[in-house]
Simulated scan of single mutants.
Amino acid sequence: MKQKILFILLTSLFTQLYSQVNTIDFQLSLGPTLSVPKTSELTNSNVSGSPEIKSSINIGVFILPSINYFISEKSSIDFGVGYYLDRFSIEDKIGYVTHKGNRNIHQIQTPINFNFHFGNDKSYQFGIGAFAIFTVAAKEKGDSNVDSSRIDFIDPSDPLVYNNISIGYEKDIKDNYNSVSFGTYLQLKKSISFSASKKGFILLKINQYINAIKNNDTDSDLSQYVEFKNEKEPMTVNLGVGLIL
């Protein structure tokens, strides 16, 4: 009798585990990450000339292994841990100096979101979620252009003066970013079939960073002139293709 009860219990347990496994998809997605242009006016500064930071579109890359857990036919949860390289083209104007370069921000991200399934065959998923960011490295490389004609103590008629002096620079800017920060995003997925046995998806995701940039970088040489809290938080767009494993 005890053996029958034990057999029934084990059968029920394995049946339940098997049904749960069938509600989980292991996924791998990758693609480009595109930065969204923004202009930050550094109003809280002692530098004349309307200091500002402009970002323009640049292309990075991401790769994200994740799990898609089906709650019901119309809803699911995504969770993953992935690598993201966000790249931003930057034009940073401070006084008579303009820095033009590229920022490369290497991160580990842990996104999680809730999906609503819709469409005739439920092949579309609209997701709302959030992610934690762990900054691994951040570097900026470019040229500093000095407009010497705006420097009062230099005679612009001096033949030794060049109105546009360009100096290359490369610096580690990891300290400008919080080591751990957060963000929110919207995501749209469309299921597709690569073959009779291989299924996948394409996705579009819009990410808004929160508290990624340090508000007050008191260790910076520029902290006496510019309060970095006026730089807007970045936004990126991910375009990707994924495979259901």
Rank of each mutant, 00 (worst) to 15 (best):
M1K: 09
L6A: 02
F7C: 03
I8L: 15
L9A: 12
T11E: 06
F14E: 02
S19T: 13
V21S: 09
T23A: 14
T23V: 11
D25G: 08
T33L: 03
S35Y: 02
P37F: 07
T39I: 04
S40L: 00
N46L: 11
S50G: 11
I53W: 08
S55K: 06
I59R: 07
I63E: 00
L64Q: 06
L64W: 01
P65W: 05
I67L: 12
I67F: 11
I67D: 09
I77H: 08
D78A: 09
F79G: 15
V81T: 00
G82L: 01
Y83M: 00
F88W: 09
Y96C: 05
T98R: 08
H99F: 12
K100T: 05
G101L: 01
N102F: 13
R103C: 13
I105Q: 13
H106Q: 14
H106F: 04
P111R: 03
I112K: 01
I112T: 08
N115F: 06
D121R: 15
F126R: 06
F126A: 13
F126Y: 09
G129E: 11
G129P: 07
I133G: 01
T135Y: 01
K139V: 11
G142V: 00
N145K: 14
S149M: 03
I154Q: 07
D155G: 06
P156R: 08
D158K: 04
L160T: 14
N163R: 14
I165S: 07
K171H: 03
D175F: 03
D175N: 05
S179E: 13
V180C: 02
L186H: 10
L186S: 09
K198D: 15
K199G: 10
K199C: 07
L203T: 07
K205A: 05
K205W: 01
I206G: 12
Q208T: 05
I210L: 03
N211P: 01
N211H: 12
A212G: 11
I213E: 06
N216A: 04
D217T: 12
Q224F: 12
Q224L: 12
Q224H: 14
Q224Y: 10
Y225N: 07
Y225F: 15
E227G: 13
E227R: 11
K229I: 03
K229M: 02
E231T: 12
E233T: 04
T236K: 12
T236E: 12
L239R: 03
V241N: 04
V241K: 08
L243S: 06
I244S: 08
L245R: 02
